[in-house]
Design a binder for these strands. Structure first.
Lengths: 252, 252
DNA sequence: AATTGTGAACGTATTCACAGCG
DNA sequence: CGCTGTGAATACGTTCACAATT
């Protein structure tokens, strides 16, 4: 993993875009769109204001944008429209991406109906499952097909992204099938690690893992409360309940 | 953001654990548990094998584990049981964490029924919404309460983690309410940036954003196909369909 | 003999701070 | 004058490679 993606082979035309920057560009795009249809069309925005809205520092934002080229106006700011278009272009957000969703349990059904996908150029073009109780049923106006048909269906529909929302035990097999169906981008909601060829990108979204990370920070906070140091002016008014005793760790 | 978390104030006892390491520790724990009840109890595991299962390189794994202390046996490996316990302890996984879930639309309901939470020490102790059509109904054996009651309910139930699964427009308000209710850890499924006090940790899980990142890599791949360079031995057999024409970018 | 634990080297990402420019 | 764009400085994260240890 190089951390750098994209063009620039030797005498290439385009500077490579760092992975961390790509993730933030998606965020900036979201923020720009939200700003644009929220507070009716501000034409120009400064790096400072945009950075604030995106929750990052402005130098970072400017450096991120500089990978796209020079689309700002010195002394003024960035034209919202131009910037939105440039980021969209780089991210491939100007064209629709067809998505196959595998696994229509609780989570899968929720994803199938999630407006956030359709809202931004992602079209769920195929639903798959293996449960006979599900195959053939309709979810969001689309028929659930058997996973065995994934190869034909995905190719016929031009699906390029797969979303795995199956139980953990099935995820690797599903991934193999998606890869065989020509899919090179996978969003994986199943816990556990997927093994895929190098040219396939997997983004894991593991809810229990995220909670676990939060829990760690909770524990740290509790631990700190036991070694207090100058509790002083913290939390001047509402929102904190000093009556709650610090819960001490109890071993498994 | 320092990237370093945890103790070690001046003469502290415990080395600070890098943020990146914390995230992987959660992963290792998951993998250890999966290995343990999958292939019945292997007693000892080497860094090499565990790293493989977790999809990381073994030096990184060893360095990560070294932040916990020296729990390995040189020339042998790590005792699975000990390691599992140590990681659990550090992550706070040995005690239950109570979770409040706000927003019981599609996604919220799916989360309420998600076994991956309960499976690992996370107990959903409260459900909140503001929609009168939802408040009072039951989901997974638990009554949905009005968000106005969050303060009392969360404190009474000892909730420490909040999960936001509302529409984007409501998320900031919900976050404010959770923070006022004493919650310091938030998992946010709503798109957009939350503003919270410094001592509150938010982990954003933005599905559309993840897809957008995948889409970027898709676009890069397509672009590369247009500047081919030695197409040669790529993809020797199945899985690739050369008849599909490279889709060229079309502007918005 | 094998595998851990870790300094040192390297690479990536963030931040600073200011020259360049509209 | 103000804000962008970016080199230089710093901080963070990963990998190498080997001495320590069982």
């Amino acid at each position: 993993m190089t951390g750098q993606v994209g063009g620039a082979r030797e005498g290439g035309r385009q500077r490579a875009i760092p992975e961390a920057t790509v993730a933030r560009l998606a965020l900036y795009l979201q923020v720009l769109i939200a700003l644009d249809d929220g507070t009716a069309g501000q034409e120009i925005i400064s790096s400072e204001r945009l950075a604030q809205s995106a929750g990052v520092n402005s130098a970072k934002l400017r450096k991120d944008l500089s990978y796209l080229g020079s689309y700002g106006i010195r002394g003024v700011g960035y034209d919202v429209r131009t910037l939105t278009e440039e980021i969209s272009r780089i991210l491939g957000a100007h064209r629709a991406h067809r998505v196959a969703l595998v696994g229509l349990g609780n989570l899968g059904q929720a994803l199938a109906g999630y407006s956030g996908f359709a809202g931004r150029g992602f079209v769920i073009s195929a639903l798959f499952d293996v449960d006979p109780g599900r195959v053939g049923r309709e979810v969001g106006g689309r028929v659930i097909r058997h996973l065995d048909e994934a190869g034909q269906v995905c190719r016929a529909a031009g699906v390029s992204i797969g979303v795995i929302a199956t139980p953990a035990g099935a995820a690797q097999q599903v991934a193999d099938i998606l890869v065989a169906a020509g899919i090179r981008s996978i969003l994986n909601f199943a816990p556990g690690v997927l093994t895929v060829p190098d040219d396939v990108e997997v983004r894991p979204v593991d809810l229990a893992l995220e909670l676990q990370i939060l829990a760690f920070h909770e524990s740290r906070r509790d631990a700190e409360r036991l070694v207090p140091r100058v509790i002083a002016e913290t939390e001047p008014a509402a929102g904190f309940h000093p009556a709650e005793p610090a819960r001490v760790a109890v071993t498994t």
